[in-house]
Simulated assay, not measured.
Amino acid sequence: MRIDVVSLFPEFVAQCAAFGVVGRAVERGLLSIHGTNPRDFAEGNYRRVDDRPFGGGPGMVMLIEPLRRALDAARRAGEGPSRVVYMSPQGRRLDQAGVRRLAAEPRLIVLCGRYEGVDERLIRAEVDEEVSIGDYVLSGGELPAAVLVDAIARLQDGVLNDTESAQQDSFEDGLLDCPHYTRPVEHDLGRVPDVLLSGDHARIARWRRMQSLGRTAARRPDLLDGRELSKADRELLQAYREEAAATAAGAGGTATAGPETG
């Protein structure tokens, strides 16, 4: 997969892409990331890429032409059609389903805004979709672009050493992930749940599913809104709540994360 990032600071995303999962994807030839700077397509001695907004107000707005030329150059640099994504707080909030959809594209061009944003006419004419990583404002689109690239990279076939790892991540099936533990078994911060030491894979799978359901209900109930749970899942969620209530009663407090023993 090829991703072109159109940004005033393309080296920022390139540096983020040099490490970890994304770096491994690039090294293995599974993902290629290229930067295009709109300033290289600006005119005049100052290579101006922004101007004051019509109607007044603070800040500056990115100009149409440097961005348009940068997008055209990015399109010409690769083969085949490309989907243009603008990282914007006004876009659709990114979720795992959206990541999977974008990861299936052969090519992406990610447009990063700065200042007060991009001239709306360019967005209407050149952008296929706007994407947000959350309801807050950042200085530019480079950090969101790096987040998007990382999320997409781990879904490319052959990137993760364990192919099941991505399938078990939070949000892959619409639920939060279950808790995880490693050595040592005994620690002054607590003991690993007995169920994970049992070697009973069916029991472990049941416990993990129960934890995912319970954590989602406790921490992100919105993810369950409108979701039709199977009878088995409803029973697991009820079991989680009963164990959480028993744990809270035994501790003399209120449990919010659920039991971690089994």
Rank of each mutant, 00 (worst) to 15 (best):
Val99Cys: 11
Val99Glu: 09
Arg100Pro: 05
Arg101Gln: 15
Leu102His: 07
Ala103Arg: 03
Ala103Val: 04
Glu105Cys: 10
Pro106Asp: 09
Leu108Met: 08
Leu108Val: 07
Ile109Leu: 08
Ile109Cys: 07
Ile109Thr: 10
Val110Ser: 03
Val110Gly: 03
Val110Leu: 13
Cys112Arg: 06
Cys112Asn: 07
Cys112Val: 05
Tyr115Trp: 10
Tyr115Gly: 02
Tyr115Glu: 01
Glu116Pro: 03
Glu116Tyr: 05
Gly117Met: 05
Gly117Ala: 00
Gly117Val: 05
Val118Lys: 01
Asp119Trp: 01
Glu120Ser: 13
Glu120Pro: 01
Glu120Gly: 13
Arg121Tyr: 07
Arg121Cys: 08
Ile123Glu: 01
Ala125Trp: 00
Ala125Glu: 14
Val127Gly: 03
Val127Phe: 00
Val127Cys: 02
Asp128Leu: 00
Asp128Tyr: 04
Asp128Gln: 01
Glu129Pro: 09
Glu130Lys: 12
Glu130Ala: 10
Val131Phe: 02
Ser132Cys: 06
Ile133Gly: 01
Asp135Cys: 06
Tyr136Trp: 13
Leu138Lys: 06
Leu138Phe: 09
Ser139Trp: 04
Ser139Pro: 03
Gly141Met: 04
Gly141Val: 03
Gly141Leu: 05
Gly141Tyr: 04
Gly141Glu: 03
Glu142Phe: 06
Pro144Trp: 05
Pro144Gln: 08
Ala145Phe: 04
Ala145Leu: 06
Ala146Gly: 05
Ala146Gln: 00
Ala146Ile: 01
Val147His: 02
Val149Phe: 06
Val149Trp: 02
Asp150Thr: 05
Ala151His: 02
Ala151Arg: 00
Ile152Ala: 05
Ala153Ile: 12
Ala153Thr: 12
Arg154Thr: 07
Gln156Met: 14
Gly158Glu: 06
Gly158Trp: 08
Gly158Gln: 05
Val159Ile: 08
Leu160Tyr: 10
Leu160Gly: 09
Leu160Lys: 10
Leu160Cys: 11
Asn161Lys: 14
Asn161Leu: 14
Asn161Tyr: 11
Asp162Val: 12
Asp162Lys: 12
Asp162Glu: 14
Asp162Gln: 13
Thr163Pro: 15
Ala166Arg: 13
Ala166Gln: 10
Gln167Met: 11
Gln167Phe: 10
Gln168Glu: 14
Gln168Thr: 12
Asp169Val: 08
Asp169Leu: 13
Ser170Leu: 11
Ser170Gln: 13
Ser170Glu: 14
Asp173Phe: 09
Gly174Pro: 12
Gly174Ser: 13
Leu175Phe: 12
Cys178Val: 12
Cys178Arg: 13
His180Leu: 13
